[in-house]
Design a protein around this nucleic acid. Structure first.
Lengths: 112, 112
DNA sequence: ACTAACTGTAAGTTAACACTAACGCTACGC
DNA sequence: GCGTAGCGTTAGTGTTAACTTACAGTTAGT
């Protein structure tokens, strides 16, 4: 799962993952829609595959890649655990009134 | 949300995020438990904060960081969308029997 | 067998980034 | 006031990694 997050960190690799998640794709197909060469896509797919996010299926000379639901579920479970933890810690915080008694600082931010 | 994934790619930053998610922490506390210097932790926290994953709250000279549930929810929503999509595409695949008619290749892998 | 189609791999380059050391800043205690 | 505690920031460095080019391998068609 650790590798899955590093794999999805790169924007290009994330676009590849999204394409493959939408529908099974061959390497050439993906490269045709991205501003990188085909070998680059091949390397990215290897990373995604080793991370357990993608599965390969050879059809003649074409290598078809599709989403691996298992890897995706691992990532989801990782973040779901944080959500549960944040709920309980929020409950405790309210009970002990640790939060809400002062929180005054804003600054640069981004992405809604 | 894009920045959130790149933020969580680094192992050190991920450990910091996990610590802060578990309970609110000051910068020095975090640095004490990690094999990096305090400025490094400070830089990592800035990245996490700009990614919307963490919130800052100044208590005197101490800067307390805690999880930002909103940023976490964004990440969860991102992956949840893929899960839904993979379910529908799996349904279509079964109906058209696109999968299950040949898939024979194994190789090196890792992480169960 | 030869060619074409499709892909993976190796080597090398360049930009990004995680880190440390040094410095500057703000809040609290004396 | 002065000193201390706790952080953030800057500049500089070393390493990682994403990319391209060139090459090698496998499959299908003639």
């Amino acid at each position: 799962m650790a590798n899955a997050l590093t794999a999805l960190a790169d924007p290009t690799r994330r676009r590849i993952f999204e394409m493959v998640a939408d529908r099974p794709c061959a390497v050439g197909e993906i490269a045709a829609e991205l501003p990188v060469t085909r070998p680059a896509v091949s390397q990215h797919l290897k990373v995604l595959r080793l991370a357990g996010l993608v599965r390969e299926q050879r059809r003649g000379t074409r290598h078809i890649y599709r989403l691996d639901p298992a890897g995706l579920d691992d990532v989801r479970a990782y973040f779901d655990a944080f959500s549960e933890r944040s709920l309980t810690s929020f409950k405790e915080a309210v009970e002990h009134s640790v939060i809400g008694d002062r929180d005054d600082n804003e600054e640069e931010e981004e992405e809604s």
